[in-house]
Design a protein around this nucleic acid. Sequence first.
DNA 1: TTGTAGGCGTTATCAG
DNA 2: CTGATAACGCCTACAA
Lengths: 334, 334
Amino acid sequence: MATIYEVSKLAGVSLATVSRVMNNNARVSDKTKKKVLDAMQTLGYRPNAIAQSLASSRSNSIGILVSELHGPFFGQMMSGIEAALRTAGKHVIITTGHSEEDKEKDGIEFLIGRNCDAIIAHVEAVSDEYLIDINKGKVPVYLMSRHVDAIKDKCISLNDEVGGYLATKTLIDLGHRQIAYIAGPQFKADASNRLQGHKRALAEHNLSFNEDLFFIGDFKETGGMDGLRHFLDNNYQFSALVCANDEMASGAMKYAREHNIVLPEQLSIVGYDNVIFANYLYPTLTTIDNPVYEMGRMAAQLVLKQVYQQKKHDIVQVFEPTVILRDSVAHFNH
Amino acid sequence: MATIYEVSKLAGVSLATVSRVMNNNARVSDKTKKKVLDAMQTLGYRPNAIAQSLASSRSNSIGILVSELHGPFFGQMMSGIEAALRTAGKHVIITTGHSEEDKEKDGIEFLIGRNCDAIIAHVEAVSDEYLIDINKGKVPVYLMSRHVDAIKDKCISLNDEVGGYLATKTLIDLGHRQIAYIAGPQFKADASNRLQGHKRALAEHNLSFNEDLFFIGDFKETGGMDGLRHFLDNNYQFSALVCANDEMASGAMKYAREHNIVLPEQLSIVGYDNVIFANYLYPTLTTIDNPVYEMGRMAAQLVLKQVYQQKKHDIVQVFEPTVILRDSVAHFNH
DNA sequence: TTGTAGGCGTTATCAG
DNA sequence: CTGATAACGCCTACAA
């Protein structure tokens, strides 16, 4: 590992000059610059990022904290962030929080300890207070899919209410009037917001919310099966079903098929999340897509703008989902 | 940010002593240790990992280089590595190579520049020579899903030949004798190895490889559709089909359904990779599962053993896939 | 435009 | 068991 010192000796200049050509900020004559560059070349010199970071207390790297390293949500989010940052010459340091308070705090402190210039975090277990507090420190912490009012300029979030609205509106526009709804656990903010959207869509079209056609599931396949069974066993009448996520929609489809209900002719189904398998179900599932990759990109641009003073970015902080129309819905024919 | 210096002043001891209690290697009297710990507590002291790393030239963090941050393969791999490393108190720094030579080299050098104690890389574009060469440096580079003989003690790989064998053997065991095969692009090592396995399974059961029942696809849905169409249009006879990955299997299933072929009664299908949607297809897809998470864990254990001298790990370097039996295959009834 | 020297927060090698 | 003190590799005023 050649150091800056050896480069300076070979080039016959001082340490400072070498440093200058590396960061080409201060003016250096073309001649000496070339000498230095040549010396670097022949020595195969690579700057030591750690030493740079210690000396300058900046690192050109951004910390990312996600709950898990797998799964389409985090995958897309990380990819979006990384893509935007890489084009700006910044690097990314990723670690995990596993949705546990201790580990999330650990992760954030690890990233701070690595001199990250900023942190982009998807955290669920730590309190708002902690986040507000940590943001008083030297390194700013940005939040994904979470809104904390006191630091709202550092938040990127998703409008689940609109998503829920769209899901139901799609069915109403197709002529459906009796629409069942299988919700997710209501202590989860996203599940509850999606339900609000559903209710608004009904209300706006003069349809009343019917408790008979409402079921709370577990966000898994079983939830969808249980919900549909519940509606069917009670002989409630409905021509369409909204599930608050694709897993439950898949479960409902399975149950429908096992009970010889023809999809979508006898029952239209809409899911939520647009996970990959939604496009592989039979029939392919109409669902709500979250622009997760875009949110990642935007978080990165926010950092670029606020931390590195890049002016050129237009910032959007609240993202809206869209409908992905596939084969699981049909016009209602009475 | 309190530093070690302030701690030492508050505790009334020297810098060296504070450092000693942090790394509790050298013996320190209980009294002074307590004084130091108290001082740390009241100051909210956090060691600066960068400074530690610079001084000790070790970082307790391992670099990971993946092609992409999204996708189930890399997700599972990263999760496996991280899980094993975290329990050992090590951290992980992740970056990407995007399957391009320049970026892969960049990524590795970035990680070296961050003083990683080791690197676990999934690289496809750089040459064997580069990898051998870089491994002569101070930081060892381990390879995922790649075998380079000169550094074979640093390689974790997957036996695709066995996977291909199992896929076909599963069908033979169910009584099938005429088995079509849709392969992946043969310049890819995994695709070609899977095909070898298929041929071995046939040979071992005295079945000859029939060019008529062989098609090379693109590893995407279209490849599966094109392949099945080819076989059908030519009126070739077969009762089962192996696809070299799940995407193509899904395409084939779609095509079969559109042409009123009842699955699995009229045609058994086996995929490869066990991606998530395989379990959501209709019928659910029998496929070959790669123990990717386990491979990640093992890579981490390899590092723990070779770099950090932890003795306790039993190392497996070549992993074998297994069959996941689902509803897309049936006994052959003639 | 270039060089000098002090410092970034720790570790590690000496003595004591 | 504890304390000075020189590294670690680089940045950055301040001088020249």
